[in-house]
Computed example of a mutant assay.
Amino acid sequence: MLKVEDLKGVIPPIVTPVDDEENVDEQGLKKVIDYVISGGVHGVFVLGSNGEFYAFDYENKKRAVEITVRHVNKRVPVYVGASAITTKECIKLAKMAEEAGADAVTVLTPMFIKPNEKEMYNHFEAIAKSTSLPVILYNNPDKTTNNISVSLLEKLSKIENIIGIKNTSFDFAQTVEYIRVTRDNKNFKVLSGSDYLIYATLAYGGAGCVAGTANVAPRLVVDIYEKYMAGDYKGAIDAQYKLIPLRNAYNYGSFPVPMKDCLNILGLEIGHPVKPIDHCSEEKLQAIKKVLDDLGLTNM
């Protein structure tokens, strides 16, 4: 089980390779895990947004989690996405993650429905109480249309096993406020969920990032964190700027396929996105290849 001091660094929300029937592909998943761990990441997050969590039934989710826990084999902490629309389903996923041996769960705000703040608080509180695992909140208002306000976050941070939040929002002022209102709470940390804002989040006292680009360029993303922590601020900001063209590649196709296409170009052979999402166009694939060439990743 994760201790709050271990919630840090670069945690990629790993892509989920699938077979021709769109079921979890074990060998592909193992390849992705080994690739990111060899790049020096500080954790692995399975069934996040980049992992197409919304696309899988319970059995596939369980399989993905069990494969990940077994294959990571305690090399780094394993975070499991336990996100769904209903509290009941999130609790079911959190219990499954705990039984499978995960180190922590990550829970997104509900999507499609619009809970008020009291309903949202009750939702996260019930999930936290259902498991002995640490819980990391996941705010992604662009995708879910629900936002964890600063005042709600302050209340949720007082729940014993809610130990952090990943903020995937371009409202950086909100990240700063999250950090400000929890600064004196030694049992709570704030992570960047936007790959544009890793350096900035660290500068304000954040603990690290959950970065989709770390699927593809783990070593570069790790450089931002490790150089910053070592006091090499120029090296860290240079690495941050170097990462931006890869983050921009998300615009080349429907989310979240660009990172899968990147990994296929790099030779990992992890297959297709789950329909209705499809691969990037041939023109955009060439643009992605140039980004990867410029980062020196295609020569590895």
Rank of each mutant, 00 (worst) to 15 (best):
D238F: 07
L202V: 08
N23I: 04
E160V: 04
K155W: 03
D57K: 14
L137N: 12
K31E: 01
V44A: 12
S132F: 04
P276G: 07
V15Y: 05
C262V: 11
H272L: 11
F45R: 00
D294I: 10
K31G: 02
P245I: 02
K284V: 10
L137W: 10
G43F: 03
I14C: 05
L268Q: 07
L295G: 06
G9S: 11
S130V: 02
D25G: 04
V135D: 02
M300W: 12
C280R: 01
I159S: 04
R63H: 08
G101V: 02
G39D: 07
P141E: 14
K118Y: 11
L47E: 00
E269G: 14
P12S: 13
V41N: 01
L153E: 00
A102F: 13
A55Q: 06
P218W: 10
A55P: 01
Y204R: 13
P141F: 12
S157T: 01
V4M: 05
N167V: 10
N122A: 13
Y35T: 05
A239R: 15
G48V: 08
P13T: 14
I136T: 06
P218R: 07
K62R: 15
V176Q: 10
Y204S: 04
V181Q: 09
Y138V: 03
I270E: 05
Y252A: 04
L220A: 01
G9R: 06
D278H: 07
M96W: 11
E26L: 07
N50W: 11
A126K: 15
V76Y: 10
L152H: 09
H42A: 05
V44R: 03
S254Y: 11
K3M: 04
A104M: 00
N50T: 14
A200P: 02
K155S: 13
T175L: 15
H42E: 13
K155N: 11
L137Y: 09
V150W: 04
K289Y: 09
C280E: 09
V291N: 12
N140P: 00
I37F: 06
Y196P: 03
E119G: 12
N248G: 08
K31N: 07
Q27T: 05
R63D: 04
D223F: 05
P258H: 09
N139T: 07
D171A: 13
T86F: 07
V291Q: 06
G101R: 07
P256G: 00
I127E: 03
V150K: 05
V80H: 07
H71K: 09
V32R: 01
G193F: 10
D57Q: 10
I127R: 04
K234Y: 09
I113W: 15
G296Q: 13
G9M: 08
L268T: 06
K129C: 03
I270Y: 09
D20W: 08
M111P: 00
K114I: 13
Y250M: 14
I127C: 01
P110R: 10
P258M: 03
V221I: 14
V222K: 14
Y138E: 11
E154K: 15
G39P: 06
I85G: 00
P13K: 15
F53G: 02
N140D: 02
G267M: 13
P115H: 15
Y196G: 02
V176L: 14
E99W: 07
I67G: 03
P218A: 14
N161C: 07
S194A: 15
G271I: 06
A97I: 04
M259T: 09
I127Q: 04
F188V: 12
Y241S: 08
Y241G: 10
I67N: 06
N50E: 11
